[in-house]
Design a binder for these strands. Sequence first.
RNA 1: GGAAGGGUGGCCGAGCGGCCGAAGGCAGCGGUCUUGAAAACCGCAGGGUGACGAGCCCCGUGGGUUCGAAUCCCACCCCUUCCGCCA
Length: 425
Amino acid sequence: MLDIKLIRNEPDKVREAMRRRGEDAPIDEVLALDEQRRSLVTEVEQLKARRNQVSEEIARAKRAGQDATEIIAAMREVSDRIKALDDQVRDVEARLEQLLLTIPNIPHESVPYGQSEEDNVEVRRWGEPRQFDFAPKAHWDIGTGLGILDFERGAKVAGARFAVYRGAGARLERALINFMIDVHTQEHGYTEIWPPFLANTASMTGTGQLPKFAEDMFRCQGEDLYLIPTAEVPVTNLHRDEILDGDQLPIYYVAYSACFRAEAGAHGRDTRGLIRQHQFNKVELVKFVKPEDSYDELEKLVADAEAILQRLELPYRVTMMCTADVGFAAAKKYDPEVWMPSYGRYVEISSCSNFEDFQARRANIRFRRHPKAKPEFVHTLNGSGLAVGRTVAAILENYQNPDGSVTIPDALRPYMGGMTRIEPR
RNA sequence: GGAAGGGUGGCCGAGCGGCCGAAGGCAGCGGUCUUGAAAACCGCAGGGUGACGAGCCCCGUGGGUUCGAAUCCCACCCCUUCCGCCA
């Protein structure tokens, strides 16, 4: 959520930011409601001040045994007026709040202007895509051939975009989760969290999934619960409505979770394989930091995600999202992308964002710089470290052999019980 | 799911419808005392809005009654215990 004061004081700056995003935000409506709210509040507060004053007089009079029926009668009128105004304030505030919740974050000044994902900027590459001396296969064919991935049965049990992992495939998924969490906890200083995989409306609103993206999520019927689309939601909301001590910061969390996405509007895209599933596993990194540190922390966060790709020796590049593709809640976002031979291009395998105080304001996550200082909003960041299903896909494709087997990356072998190759059954 | 109890400031815990933003205690901060510390004593200390002023708001949440609600009524949420069910 943007600071209403920023919109009030620098509306043109906000309008320009929205224009650069290609977003049609209701700034004028917000300004009008804000003004309306403030004039109502002024009026009702004056009346309340009077009511408080007179209430004291009444109390005094009663204690002195004097008659107060006349003042009471007069106050009844004031009271009715207060009630009417309070109703109006509540209504205007609710509408204002609803609008503010739909306005995206302001992109950081370092974010390049662009009109679509075509305008994202590559910032670096690591590794060389492998040159195959045989016709490489796509991971869904490799996985099916090895008997470690089963899309047909996934569809039978649940539906399209659900997969079943079997044998060494299931173990590979699990090995990757453990490997990633171990690297982040043991080498990058993150604390492991095992969060709920369902979250309520308040949490979903706090991180920005609601109210705008309700159709992207699975909701439990008759309950105020959604399946989380990412561990970002429960982990960021861990500190919702809290005031943290400044010396606790920065806080680094790493969490595995299954992630659930309705993928509404993705018909026909990535219909084969593990790239776009309704359910997938992800190891997520979440940071709470002081505002002045958040952009350094973003760079470190991306490096932490990249470290996993490097250990796995998977070629990748990092792109910086342009204003049109930066994401609703983010001020700046990098996407590490892994080389995917079947796609003949790099495919997003992580997404690392600095939200500045956008989520903190929604979720009311603050800190005190000093024990007596006023609370300030923290900056929140998160990034995938990494999407596990896509990592499996990348390993199957990049490590495939002519005979249909797949070599296990060195770094993963301890997690696979020493296995060096996945052989056909 | 059923029954009972409970949700008050960082924590514990009082609180007859007006004198309650809220006693008291603990923890915290400052000071006195002390070689130093402890103890003792004195003082300061919640959040939001607003201009770190005034005012207004905040006693789980949302409604209601009333001139006036932490206190009364209704609904909901959460916690604890017991029972039931269950990985």
